[in-house]
Design a protein around this nucleic acid. Sequence first.
DNA 1: CTGAAAGCGCTTACAG
DNA 2: CTGAAAGCGCTTACAG
Lengths: 329, 329
Amino acid sequence: MITIKDVAKLAGVSTATVSRVLRENYSVKKETTIKVLEAVKALNYEPNILGRYLRTNETKTVFVVIPDISDFFSNVLRGIEVVAKENGYQVLLGNTQFIQEREYEYLKLLQQNKTDGMILLTSQTNKDQINELADQYPVVLACDYWEGSKVPMVSIDNISSARKATEYLIRQGHKRIAHITGRLNIINSRDRLTGYKQAVEEYQLYDPLLIQIGEGDFSYESGFQLAQKLLALELPPDAIFAANDEMAIGAVKAIKKNSLKVPDDIAVIGFNDIHIASVFEPALTTISQPMYKIGETSMKMLLKLMNQEPLLKRQLLLEDKLVVRETTK
Amino acid sequence: MITIKDVAKLAGVSTATVSRVLRENYSVKKETTIKVLEAVKALNYEPNILGRYLRTNETKTVFVVIPDISDFFSNVLRGIEVVAKENGYQVLLGNTQFIQEREYEYLKLLQQNKTDGMILLTSQTNKDQINELADQYPVVLACDYWEGSKVPMVSIDNISSARKATEYLIRQGHKRIAHITGRLNIINSRDRLTGYKQAVEEYQLYDPLLIQIGEGDFSYESGFQLAQKLLALELPPDAIFAANDEMAIGAVKAIKKNSLKVPDDIAVIGFNDIHIASVFEPALTTISQPMYKIGETSMKMLLKLMNQEPLLKRQLLLEDKLVVRETTK
DNA sequence: CTGAAAGCGCTTACAG
DNA sequence: CTGAAAGCGCTTACAG
């Protein structure tokens, strides 16, 4: 392995000088610089980044904890990646598969110095633990809004957007509006359920039979199965609001399979506005989240935290939008 | 920051002993072990992994270079992640967005010791460069088969599977079979084109007008646009074979939009068998790749390379399968 | 502008 | 079973 010593020897300078040339922030005589760069080239030297890490105590790496690699999270990731790259950071990805202990394991990487900062794309860790960690390390929570927590976060207001979606169905004249939730160990799933309840309760349309709790791993299939159950009710729903687009598409398929029409017999609304939502036929009415922007913003916040710059706002709620397509009237 | 020294002091032992206790491979007296573990707990000590890295010269990190976070690559990634995790490795993700220089930048991380090994999920780097790198570092190429290269690789045989898909259409009586390619800077896109050509040439059905080159970023839209062009031909196709499922779905949409029926007027075959392929209506006939297994296998190969164990086979071609659904007769 | 030297936090061969 | 010591490859405050 070629080290800085080899370069120094060949260039006839000290290792300090080589380091200075490569770090680019120091004043080194032009001739010296040239000598060093020639030696670097001749030896095809690449600095061993581990040496730098240990010395500077930073890894220029951020860790993104993701519950699953779905279309939705991919889009958020894209935003994170672009900003990270622009600022010389690399993105480490940790997949929890919705397993809480996994998230906890990843969080330990902060203590181990394996990463300079961390973005959680949703979280399942308990509030106290996270608050404590966020006190000591740069951590940003994205896609979830944790009421009462002081962790820096970026998301939409899932409660109000779920309420908005449900109210839209109410205004269209639907009376029996069902909700298929996401996994309830995810904060935003609970929030969407809350928003749904707020709306149906306000209009006295609440019926616990109309709530199906999503659990499964394959959202399309799970949406299909849960919609089947709803359709099997004595008084089936006339509209279904699903907590994500995959489940909504599954629901549409179940409705069709029962020889019913979307939206005439049963309307459907999804959540997220992933790519397939507009491609699927019928195209899905859904709540559109600014996925890329959530990613971008969370990474920008993390950069500020890592650089110890003040955050103007520790909590940021971005705007969502109800996109009406073909699954509602 | 709490270091091994603090733990050693509190436990009344040397740092060497602390290290031995934590590395678990050494014989340490039981009482000493207990003292050390108590100190670790009392101080809430987590080893600074950078110190270990530098000393052992390994990062327990593998880097996966991915051209894009699509459903297909996500599934391959899942396989990689599971095997990586089982073996104590973390997965770093680098997204090239199909930009060749990005891939090159990531490859440099190997020289910098930032990662112990690398898996390329497709490659755009030129053969000589890659061969040279693979001589020196643990590198595996997945999803692409590079003829004549000695880089360890895992993929399906894209040429024969594309030929198989095209021949299937021929056997169903189609005479004007079009092909929408993937980006041709990707090896497997070129291979699929080759397989398609082999089949249509054998049956004297070759017509260059029936080949559309995919370039765009959003496969559904791009498939839609290219299919539109095909439909605008004086002699339009009676079947379309697309190099991926997203494009195939876009093509189906274009066909429907032109008031034609799938598969009666025009049959469609996709490639990959991503999740949406079976969910979309009509469900897509497609070539199913063993995505998870490709990931799993590539990571296993990488492990062997990193541990300097011999590879039984440096090149592995896994089996694909033509899945007939509703877009073909 | 440059060098000698210390040190980042670990691990491990060596000696006992 | 355990400790003293060297050293991994860098960076940087200090001195000149």
